[in-house]
Nucleic acid binder design. Sequence first.
DNA 1: GAAACCTTGACACAACCGTGGTAAGGTTCC
DNA 2: GGAACCTTACCACGGTTGTGTCAAGGTTTC
Lengths: 125, 125
Amino acid sequence: MNALTIQEAAQTTDWSPRMLRYIERAGLIEPQRSEAGYRLYGPAELQRLRTLRELATRFDIGLAEIGFAQRLRGDDELAGAVDAWLEAQPRRPEDVPPAEWLRWEQDKHTKLLALARATPATTHA
Amino acid sequence: MNALTIQEAAQTTDWSPRMLRYIERAGLIEPQRSEAGYRLYGPAELQRLRTLRELATRFDIGLAEIGFAQRLRGDDELAGAVDAWLEAQPRRPEDVPPAEWLRWEQDKHTKLLALARATPATTHA
DNA sequence: GAAACCTTGACACAACCGTGGTAAGGTTCC
DNA sequence: GGAACCTTACCACGGTTGTGTCAAGGTTTC
């Protein structure tokens, strides 16, 4: 039925078979397998392969970066930590009126401390 | 007053001066400069440098990845595009009951189309 | 049972990441 | 005015990304 082998899928999506395997190893698109282990790409996978190319070329980002975004959305702790760190960036205290300044500092520390408390060691709580 | 030169900052944050310059070029932490062009690290920068190390080692992520997260939060269009793509991932249609299936598909396409409309070429609208 | 596909694994290679070093030159401090 | 710092700009080097090719072996199809 409508499931393509790797070579066919490569042709209709403008990737190479090699890259399809690579994309799979990167954890981005994992097709079903036949009993013998052959990759089978369905319509959904094909569509995602095409939009993946779009995404990567339009914004000039790599598969690794998309993989990182995927990891970000799957790992709340990581997402929180990164977010907290970035939160403390945009403007330096000198650029902010003193009234806001205190709240900014406190806010930042609240977030970072919450993170630290939530993750005592290296793995989850 | 309490602004450290690159070498002092490196010592108290356990980075090397080389890496402090690299981190700056990565757009992660950009210290003020003296009139002569010397980097001046204030308390906020020092704190951020220490937490940056924590973040990177704890989750085993690179500076480039943190830089990408920063880019994500600064570029709504990019964030939307990545999010829309990832949205269509977690479960394949076959694993979802048909009732939800339609909404899932439609939802995904709505997001992707919204993105496509919002960004006709390669740059912003 | 041979052709045409598929699988994993390896070698290769340019480009970048994370680091270190070193050189050539300006600043600060005593 | 020399010591000790700073700046930028390069060379280097192991590791990862993205990509191709090739080999050794299993599957499908006629």
